[in-house]
Computed example of a mutant assay.
Amino acid sequence: MKIVLTGSLGNIGKPLTNLLVAAGHQVTVISSKKERITEIESLNAVAAIGSIQDAEFLTETFKGADAVYLMEAWEGIGSLSDKEIDFLAEFKKIAQNYVTAVQQSGVKKIIHLSSIGAHSDQGNGSLLVHYNVEQILQTLPEDVSIKFMRPVGFFSNMYRWLSTIQSQGAIIQSYGGANKEPWVSPYDIAATIAEEFQKTFSGRTVHYIASDEVSPDEIANVLGKAIGNPNLEWKVISSEELLNQMLSAGINEWIAKGMVAMQKAQGDGSLYEDFYTSKPKLGKVKLEDFAKEFAEKYKTIN
C-alpha cells in the first residue's frame, strides 16, 4: 500500500515507519522540518515537508495514498507554557484540515492516533481535545473507514518526573496508591498500528492500546530500584496544591486545570471505564523494560 504518515519521526513515527517499510509498503512521512529529509530517506521512506495546519499541502500529499495515519501533537501547536494558545481551538482546526484533505484527496482508509479518555466529553480534563477531534473526523462520509487508536498514558510521560525526583527525591502527583492503571510504550503503539494497516478496514472502530498495568506504588518501586534509589517516594499532594505548582511554573491555565482533572480521573478510575469494557491484549514492553531507559536518562541529569 501507499501510506502517508503524519507525526514525522517521533517516538511512534520512527518505529512505525520502519515496520511499514519492512512490510513492503511505500511510505511517505510528513514533517515540518527540512532537516528531517535525510533521516526519513535513510529509512527508505519519502519525505513530505509541510505543515498539518496547511490543508492544501495535506490534500496534495494525501493524493494517491491508499491509507493515511493521522495524529495531532501538542508540541506542534505550541508550548504548554504559552498562556495565549487556545488548545481546544487549535486541535479542532487541525481536525478540520484533516477532514478537508481526506475528502479532497479521495483517501478512504484512516488510522487516527487518539487517546484514552476520547470516549467522553466529561471528566477527562485536557484529553477533551481528543474527544473533539474524533467527533470531527466522524463527520467524514461513511465510505471513509476510520480506526481510532486510543493508547493509554505513555511510559515516556514519566520523564516529566525527573526534575522532582532529582530535587525532592519523589514523584509528586495528586493521586497514588496500590490501584493498578494501564500504561503503554510508543513501541507497542507503533507495532499495533502497523498490524492494523495490514488488516481489513471497515466502518468506524475503536482500538485501545496498552503495554502493562501497574500501580503508583509499583512504579515508584521499579523506577527507584532502576536509578539506585530504592526509597523513591510517590508523594500525593492535593489537587489545589498541584494546580498552584503548575500555575507558578507558568503552565497555560487551561492545560494546568485539565491535567489536575485528568489525574482525578486516573485516581478514581473513571478515566479507564471504557478501556476496561474492551481491554486489549497487552503489548510486549513492560515497566521493567522502560525503567532501564528511564535510568539512562536519569544518569544524564546527575
Rank of each mutant, 00 (worst) to 15 (best):
L5Q: 00
Y298G: 01
L140K: 09
S105Y: 01
D274V: 06
L271R: 06
Y175C: 07
W161L: 02
N124L: 15
L140D: 09
F148R: 13
V107R: 13
I237Y: 07
K299S: 04
R160L: 04
D82N: 15
F155W: 12
A170S: 08
L127P: 14
E134I: 11
I301A: 08
G169K: 08
K14I: 04
L5E: 01
Q53N: 14
Q103K: 15
I49P: 07
G10P: 04
T300E: 05
T164Q: 11
S31M: 06
T59G: 00
G10M: 02
Y98I: 04
T100V: 14
N157T: 08
K299I: 04
I172Y: 03
T38R: 07
K83H: 15
E253R: 11
Y272S: 01
I77S: 05
N229M: 09
W234G: 00
V133W: 01
I301V: 10
F201A: 12
L247T: 06
S51E: 07
Y159Q: 06
Y69F: 11
L80I: 15
E60M: 02
G169C: 12
G177R: 02
Q53W: 01
E296K: 06
S174D: 11
K2Y: 07
S79A: 13
I172Q: 04
A226V: 13
T38S: 14
S126A: 15
A67D: 07
G228R: 03
K33D: 11
L271A: 09
A67V: 09
E41C: 00
F154S: 06
P186R: 15
K264N: 11
N11L: 08
H25G: 03
D188T: 14
Y276K: 02
G283P: 14
P141C: 15
S156I: 08
S238W: 03
T164F: 05
G24Q: 05
L19M: 11
S31C: 07
A194R: 00
W234F: 10
E75D: 13
E253W: 03
P15E: 05
A73T: 12
S114P: 01
K279H: 12
I165S: 10
A170P: 01
I189H: 05
V46L: 01
S81Y: 15
G283T: 11
M259E: 11
I255Q: 14
T139P: 12
V46G: 00
Q138F: 15
Q122P: 11
I40R: 00
I30D: 04
Q266F: 14
T28R: 00
I219W: 00
S215G: 07
S167E: 15
I219L: 07
E195N: 15
G125M: 13
E296F: 05
S238P: 02
T59Q: 01
N97R: 04
S32R: 03
S248L: 06
S238C: 09
K108G: 02
L247R: 06
V4R: 00
D212C: 12
A73K: 10
V144L: 12
I146E: 13
I237D: 10
